[in-house]
Design a binder for these strands. Sequence first.
RNA 1: GCCCCCAUCGUUCAGCGGCCUAGGACGCCUGCCUUUCACGCAGGUAACACGGGUUCAAAUCCCGUUGGGGGUGCCA
Length: 454
Amino acid sequence: MTARLRFSPAPTGYLHVGGARTALFNWLYARRVGGTFVLRIEDTDADRSRPELVEAIYDSLRWLGVDWDEEYHQSDRFEAYREVAQSFLDKGLAYYCDCSQDDVKARVGDKGAGYDGHCRQRDVQPGEGVVVRFRTPDEGLITWDDLIRGRVEFDATTLEDFIIVRSNGVPMFHLANAYDDYDMGITHVVRGEDLVNTTPRVILLREALGATEHPIYAHLPLIVNEQRKKLSKRRDDVAVGDYRSRGYLPEAMRNYLVTLGWGPKDDIEIRPLVEIIEQFDLADINKAPAFFDVKKLDHFNGEYIRELDVDEFITQSTPYINDAYGSIDPALYRRLAPFVQERVRRFDESPRFINWIVATPPEPTEKDWRKVMQKDKVPEVLDLVIEQIEAAEWTPERMSEIILGAGEQLGVKSQLPVRLALTGQRSGIPLFEPMVELDREVVLNRLRTARAAL
RNA sequence: GCCCCCAUCGUUCAGCGGCCUAGGACGCCUGCCUUUCACGCAGGUAACACGGGUUCAAAUCCCGUUGGGGGUGCCA
């Protein structure tokens, strides 16, 4: 039998890195074993689901290179869910209940064990404010062998009679989810650990459906923030789309995500996707939650950026450049880009490196000024450089000779003061090649201004 | 409250009873390269939460403690 896996997001928000990793692990495994990867949009809650978010989820998934073989929307399948609910009703596996949430709370208290089974024998008829509840067993053990967690057991007495159809007639997620996995022949369910507690319900529902076998479950450890809490779309900055627009490469994101909860046997973390697919196995995923470390992501991204062809780097970084400076001369950027590519970890860092060429350089910080300009012989260096530059041949070679020569002549290091005068910063791309992109007068002006400020 | 889960360097992955004086990566620090920065290279820093067992032998197995997390919706 060929493996069938699915990613089933609810379109109630943008795809965040946790969901992306879940999708990725499902996809990786499907690709690894030559199985089928299904995308199923779980939009049973019309109040919270938004169609435009479905588009956003597609975008993020595609960006990451996660492609799907089949696609379903639960909102298209309500009829089937209602039929299932009706058949449960007919068989006595489910019953109508007209208790309001307040009624239940009044009987069992605030922190009680959920619903108390009040309507089990009351023979409530369908109508306004009436839900359908699934009759859970009063005793017994519900168990499964989780690929990641090992054997998991739940005592049936801890399970309440949960709702499968809302009072507005719309099926609840458990029902839709259980039926779809059954109907679609899903063989491996790989999802976040926050869903372990719902697994017993799903198993019960499947059995009611007549399933004799269950999929293999694998509950992934959560991705957490620095406070070690589950990532939240509201609190944490985690939308995949945001990383995309900040200038992360999908390859880097994908590669980094895969190292959260899993690692290749040979310890080589940054590697081509095909090799990851070859090595990936659900059984090797660990149980402990993992912190999403942007610093490490940045490192991965930097590695991937440096591996790019210059042309590719240019096309990818140009939008950020144009965004910062308006449209700049492509030929100029082509000359500068190789220097930038070696230094950035994200595309959105690119503009900063050429600010002194295409715009006004920033004011040096006081600290930088002190550390660089209040050194011995700095006035002499600047004077010498200004003097020689006035009539020099305008080539990088000459610039190098003049600037470095001044230092040699005076017995000090001369690049830093010139750099600070010209760029306003102590660090950045090389000086000599880029500076001849500037007009001689601009260079002299910056030099003279700095000299005057000493 | 109740149910469930987790626990190796700051972070992440490795380790699945002896190969561990615990390894890789990120971060951080040092040096080399370079008259900037970055890259690269060479080093360094730093962890088995605690307490009991089991065993000839435990980071690895068992129990407890502590700490952390998830769930507990007519959300998914």
